[in-house]
Design a protein around this nucleic acid. Sequence first.
RNA 1: CGGAGCGUGGCUCAGCCUGGUAGAGCACCUCGUUCGGGACGAGGGGGUCGCAGGUUCAAAUCCUGCCGCUCCGACCA
Length: 436
Amino acid sequence: MRLSAYFLPLLRENPSEAQIVSHRLMLRAGMVRQLSAGIYSWLPLGFRVLNKVEQIVREEQDAAGALEVLMPTIQPAELWQESGRYEDYGKEMLRITDRHERQMLYGPTNEEVITDIFRQSVKTYRDLPKNLYHIQWKFRDEVRPRFGVMRGREFLMKDNYSFDLDAKGAKHSYNKMFVAYLRTFARMGLKAIPMRADTGPIGGDLSHEFIILADTGESQVFCDRAWLDADILANEVDYGSDLEPFFQKWTSLYAATDEKHDPKALPPDRLVTARGIEVGHIFYFGTKYSAPMKAVVAGPNGEQIPVEMGSYGIGVSRLVGAIIEASHDDAGIIWPESVAPFKLGLVNLRAGDQRCIAAADDLYAKLNRAGIEVLYDDRDESPGAKFAAMDLIGLPYQLVIGPRGLDKGVVEFKERKTGARSELAPDAALNRLAGR
RNA sequence: CGGAGCGUGGCUCAGCCUGGUAGAGCACCUCGUUCGGGACGAGGGGGUCGCAGGUUCAAAUCCUGCCGCUCCGACCA
């Protein structure tokens, strides 16, 4: 993508409404614009990241055997009256009346809708287990939206729902999601630590929050030092096998939120105190919805059995902010390669110099042919402005083309994360990037 | 929802106290000179000061109401 043809409205100064670093950087890097309190438009650069995060979530859900669906954002109130949550949910739920005076709502979550879908079509235990997910916009009318997309009112969430015949099956479904979540966050360069959690308005008796460590996190958390070196992606997981050992392994290391922290749980030399951001939450809640909504199946002996359910959420749009919170420096964002909007920034320092243009255009074409996602800064700007822009948007690698380098037959290769620079022949730079 | 604050070109902000008809830096447009970490000169465009009402000869400035946004606290992916 040529920057001259892109839509990347960068801000040189910090918008006064943005108080935390991810919010500031997302506005300055031209990723999002606020439309209203807690409601954001995603601009091209931000949308690319959102899609990459979403895709990683999707791949890990698919790998764990969940099936993707898409449910509406607008739901009828009756379903919520049936489950008993219509009144309980309170003012957080955005209620809407349609032209026929029918009570509708903008879905804050989807337990009711999915349970309705399930009960219409699944009548026998032979069709179990099932696990359905979707990635859809939600609306929760937060009293106080803040932190940019990290706590918006409208947000993109992956939520899924498992259906099993009995508690044992439900626990296996829970474990699958537990594994999938650890893998999902790890692939985004995040260390997400599962912490036992309250179930809140969702209900149920088994629940874990997944919390990533970031200096600017909302809440204080405590964990075993061993977490810092843990490598979740090190071992492959067979979702068909018994996952309980995996679950036991990753829940045995101490980790607790502020409310649940026991100061005596660990010796001081093993205790890490940090800030945390919640990026996922999983629940096993049994028959809380299936019983009142009559989501029952015929069991092996013909009896009617309410299904055992769980629900699992990942804040997809929140993750974009959370990743920035966890990975940035004074100059801007530092994207993990897996979610970076482009892998590479190609900078032509002299937009008016034919030799530089020819060299940059040539490299740009080759990079495109090699399938490398590249943002090509072909604008006529000062070098300083170009470098600052590249550092701000935080692409993992930069290639700089200028007259000095061309005299020596080289381009400069820079790594955003480490700041390491080296000079390479253009073809060598190409190979190096293609090899990564 | 309790407490606090803000709303003036795209962004950051000054002007408001002590009313006299809007200003700076950055950004933008044109020309020229520049160019290896946010260049320089000259010229130029853009706002009626969140909205409504009131006081006054006169309101960005004073008064009232409303709307919007932000921050601190209790709740959430």
